[in-house]
Nucleic acid binder design. Structure first.
Lengths: 161, 161
DNA sequence: CTATGCCTTCGAGCGCGCTCGAACGCAAAT
DNA sequence: ATTTGCGTTCGAGCGCGCTCGAAGGCATAG
């Protein structure tokens, strides 16, 4: 497992065509059959990040992880689920700062739900903006490829793009 | 001009609906009516980047800029067009490294056109992947907002997303 | 005459998100 | 008995893309 990263597997699961459907999302990385506990190496492999990064996230206060008799980390299913969430948010571009804020809200209790939703909604809007930006850039690059004149500007219909 | 950045203006030009069309792109920041020369402050304002960054790009070998009698930079239309291209590529996520490579190819002459196209095609593919990634993340975040249970995982249909 | 304001060069510093090295512990394998 | 392999902590270092500070030049305004 986890030869490819989560995102790659997710994209493969979706296929190359059609709109992204909630149904397709449902099939992704189902967190139902997680082992009760995992080692750092197993979690690292699952999430396709390094043990170093996992320790870093813990240091950053994003997740608490118990230790066994040897002082080795023992990730329970809850920690793993949280880390799946965290890595997905990181992959989608949410800064560590915001993630720390969000997690602090989660750990603060149920009364922070509205504020958590604010964070998510803001991130959603950021994603929408970014997707539109990249789509525009993509169109521009495709245009430049199609009409390539070789300069970085000059007398093309869409100079420089 | 340039109270908003290039990308913001571009997105406004496109409007909020429908597919991105080449026709719409044509209306963006037409480089036809550029002044013959510009100062660093004018270029910085046009591109919505700082003079510091412009000097940095020059140091990085991305563009050559002449000086006037006082040693001040004088950006000619060619330099400005190149900088428009460069900032657009930067905004779309192309690393400095790749941009330096691309510019080296441009400056090396017409025989590098195939290799330049390789760079562009690779960037196009990167953009496509990234857009798909972000679209998936967006769907996931929208789903989490819609079904919000408050945890970062647990017993939701789409736990952790 | 001196401020102000924008420019110059040079090199250093910063914020982000890791990434790594050192020094060590424990346990199973040879 | 030692090697191998995986884990630990701590703090430092890195790659990227800027961003800034210092020290100074020149020109216009008051």
């Amino acid at each position: 497992m986890a030869t490819d990263d989560l995102m790659t597997r997710a994209l493969e699961a979706l296929g190359d065509d059609g709109p992204v459907s909630v149904e397709a999302i449902h099939d992704l990385a189902d967190l139902a059959d997680l082992p009760e506990t995992m080692t750092i190496a197993e979690v690292a492999d699952l999430l396709d990040i390094s043990p170093h990064t996992l320790r870093y996230y813990e240091r950053a206060g994003l997740v608490e992880v118990a230790r066994d008799g040897h002082g080795h980390r023992v990730y329970d299913a809850g920690a793993v689920r949280r880390l799946v969430f965290l890595t997905r948010m990181r992959l989608s571009g949410m800064p560590m700062r915001d993630l720390q804020h969000y997690i602090a809200l989660v750990d603060a209790g149920g009364h922070t739900v509205p504020e958590r939703l604010d964070v998510l909604v803001e991130h959603r809007d950021t994603l929408r903006r970014r997707i539109r930006e990249l789509t525009l850039s993509l169109t521009a690059v495709e245009y430049k490829i199609a009409t390539y004149g070789g300069s970085t500007g000059a007398d093309e219909p869409l100079p420089g793009l």
